[in-house]
């Protein structure tokens, strides 16, 4: 089970890893919070000690001035031989809503993307790749009918990345 602190740390770390704001990843009024599902997936797929080392490493980093945090995540988590692959798999999970089972070899582009599971039907609709591209997953669109005929809003529009 995940505690509230775990969720806060997970969302904070994910914000730095994905480039999306923490409010976008876990909106205050989300009716189906995907962050909770992703944390549970992480905790059920990865050795508990490793997950808690990653989250506690981030917790320390979160005490730094915000401007210094990304570099610290790079050096202390992404560059760590054990944490790095897990963190990269977390990025993929957020963007593609898939947990890749062979996360231990992310440097191999073939096997690194071979076997994966879509986290849930809810998660399928919420992959960040779609938001980043201002698109939508196949078979599920929250855009108004006919959106393709109008100019998309600016990429940095704050309200569209929930």
């Amino acid at each position: 089970m995940s505690s509230n602190q775990d969720l806060t740390d997970f969302v904070g770390l994910s914000a730095i890893l994905t480039g999306f704001g923490a409010d976008d990843l876990n909106p205050q009024f989300s009716p189906a919070p995907v962050a909770v599902e992703y944390l549970q997936t992480l905790q059920s797929k990865v050795d508990a000690a490793l997950v808690s080392r990653m989250l506690s490493t981030y917790q320390t980093i979160s005490g730094l001035p915000p401007a210094e945090q990304p570099a610290a995540v790079q050096s202390q988590i992404l560059a760590d031989p054990q944490l790095g692959p897990v963190a990269r798999n977390v990025i993929r999970m957020w963007y593609l809503s898939i947990w890749y089972t062979d996360y231990s070899d992310p440097n191999n582009p073939v096997t690194g993307f071979s076997d994966g599971t879509v986290v849930s039907s809810n998660a399928y609709t919420k992959g960040l790749a779609w938001d980043a591209a201002q698109a939508h997953p196949m078979g599920y669109s929250e855009m108004h009918y006919g959106y393709w005929a109008t100019e998309p809003p600016p990429l940095d529009s704050p309200d569209d990345n929930s």
Binding site: P27, F29, S30, P31, W130, D131, Q134, A135, H136, E142, M143, H144, Y147, T150, E151, P152, P153, S157, D159, D160, N161, S162
Partner: peptide
Amino acid sequence: TQPKNSPTGPKAA
């Protein structure tokens, strides 16, 4: 829950 989302954006609903 996000009523102010842009009507031309990906989360217009």
